[in-house]
Nucleic acid binder design. Structure first.
Lengths: 324, 324
DNA sequence: AACGCGTATGTAACCCGTTACATATATATA
DNA sequence: TATATATATGTAACGGGTTACATACGCGTT
């Protein structure tokens, strides 16, 4: 492998001068620069990023922790983060945590040993003590971790209220909710939004609430039970689209007509909801955009540690489709 | 940050001895080892991987190039590669190439500068000259690049024939094909399989062939045209499941009943096909498994450069669902 | 007694950019 | 003319592990 010393020798200058040319800093005479450039060209020299990282203590790498890239919500997030990383000259590392804290900690340590420059966390298991006093910049995405850790999220509470309001406007009189796991902040917010919309209705009944796990199958089973025990339900607000699909399938298997007998609204706005039939009405998050913003904020934090950065809450948007 | 020298000082030994303890090689007296271990513990010392990489010229990182992680075929592949990387102590880097050769080359150079240990390529745009003489181990996945580059693929040709045979067995008399892009090796193979099954049928008509782009929308439009011009078609072999979804939607919009009036079979076996209604019959690839094998082979190649490694062609498997 | 080998540990060079500091010339200011 | 400043370039230390090589002790063999 050719090194900066080879280039220096060929161009008849010191390594310092070559380094100045490469990094375009310090004083270098025009003609010297030409000579160095030519030597670099001739040897096809590429600086070794590892040596650079060692000296600088920075690696130009950022990581994204997601529970599981196979969950269709996350690829778009990952794509956004990768695009922005790439645009700013960072290499993108993807880690699947399976919502397991020990995996997160193992990844974290491994990445710190590699001088990772920053990490974006989609996590419901990292604890406050694990994230505070971290010397490497962290950003929470999609799920808040604690109030001191900058986060990029959506207005889950408001979005949930709007979803329920929309069902009411469509004429639903008995609205149920399939919630997400209680340890996930956005699931709690969506649940709270639902509750604040329905708790004072005279028809409200806590049997209309099921706890799901943000996955298709559980929602399928839960919905079947729910609708069999409570045939009066005519609307369901589902805490994410993936479970929304499970609800549609359950209704289909019970021969309940959507949207005639039952209206369904999801949350997230993943492409999947557009493909089912009936297609799924949803409160869509700006998924790509929140991933993009998280990456931009992280890079800002890495490159300008002193700028003041604030958490962001983006707005969800109703997308009406065939399920309502 | 605490360094090996800090540990050495505290344990009253040389850095060489500490290194020997960390890496468990060379002679170290039992009691010395205890002392060093304790110093490591006490200082919470973690070796700096960047320094290690610089000396060794290896980074313990591997990368996966995919066209776009948002295409639902790739997350499972990525997950498999990440799992295996992780298991063997490698860090996983994901690169979205958008099928653009210049992006691939840019990524490649960036990764080489980071002493990447190996790369898995899902690519239809890398050229023979770009991959030969690469000093870093490469593996082609899902798509062959050239005969000299080890690949992990499936039996696309055979699978395609089986798909068409299955449609015939189901009673289809006029079988069309929506193919993938001609520059993708697996699309060509699947097309060839289709052709070899139908070319000698007296009903065969080249109008039954459309070229798609492995995406939903194009297939939707193409199918509408195809079925309107050729209402006699009663079976379609679609080169991937994503386009299969487009076909299902097109049939729905034309009020063509599936499977009664039209049978559809896809290829890939992505989860999506299980969620549509009707659900999509498909020739399923062992997606996770081929990703896993590619990663295992790559790591084998990295860690034992002299072992003889062969390309692998895995078998696809018919999954019958409601669309046939 | 001399030699060989296994055990144990330390010194210093090495991996390869980066940059603080030293040196030197030329131009500008006082 | 003396001093300050911009320009130009080189030397060597530095970042933090790794390891070749040197040194030294203990024990067994001849």
């Amino acid at each position: 492998m050719t090194t900066i010393r080879d280039v220096a020798k060929l161009a008849n200058v010191s390594v310092a001068t070559v380094s100045r040319v490469i990094n375009n800093n310090g004083y270098v005479n025009e003609s010297t620069m030409q000579r160095v450039r030519q030597a670099i060209e001739q040897l096809n020299y590429r600086p070794n990023d590892v040596a650079r990282s060692l000296f600088k203590g920075k690696s130009k790498m950022i990581a994204l922790f997601v529970p599981d890239i196979m969950n269709p919500f996350f690829p778009e997030l990952a794509r956004a983060v990768e695009d922005i990383s790439n645009k700013h000259g960072y290499t993108f590392i993807l880690c699947n945590t399976d919502n397991q804290n020990d995996k997160e900690i193992t990844y974290l340590n491994a990445l710190l040993q590699k001088s990772i420059d920053g990490i974006i966390l989609v996590s419901s298991t990292m604890t406050t003590s694990q994230v505070k006093d971290m010397k490497v910049p962290l950003i929470a995405l999609d799920r808040k971790i604690n109030p001191n850790l900058i986060s990029v999220t959506v207005n889950n509470y408001e979005g949930a209220r709007q979803a329920v309001q929309y069902l009411k406007k469509q004429g639903c009189k008995r609205i149920a909710h399939i919630s997400g796991p209680e340890n996930i902040s956005n699931a709690r917010e969506r649940f709270r939004g639902y509750l604040d919309e329905v708790r004072d209705e005279e028809w409200f009944n806590s049997d209309f609430i099921c706890v799901g796990n943000y996955a298709v199958n559980d929602a399928f089973e839960a919905t079947k039970k729910l609708l069999q025990s409570n045939p009066e339900i005519d609307g369901i607000f589902v805490a994410n689209d993936l479970m929304g699909v499970g609800v549609l399938k359950a209704a289909e298997s019970l021969k309940i007509k959507i949207p005639n007998e039952l209206s369904v609204i999801g949350f997230d706005g993943i492409e999947l909801g557009n493909i089912t039939s009936p297609s799924l009405t949803t409160m869509a998050q700006p998924i790509y955009n929140i991933g993009k913003r998280a990456a931009e904020i992280l890079i800002q934090k890495i490159e300008h540690p002193n700028t003041v950065i604030k958490s962001e809450e983006h707005k969800v948007k109703l997308i009406t489709r065939e399920s309502t």
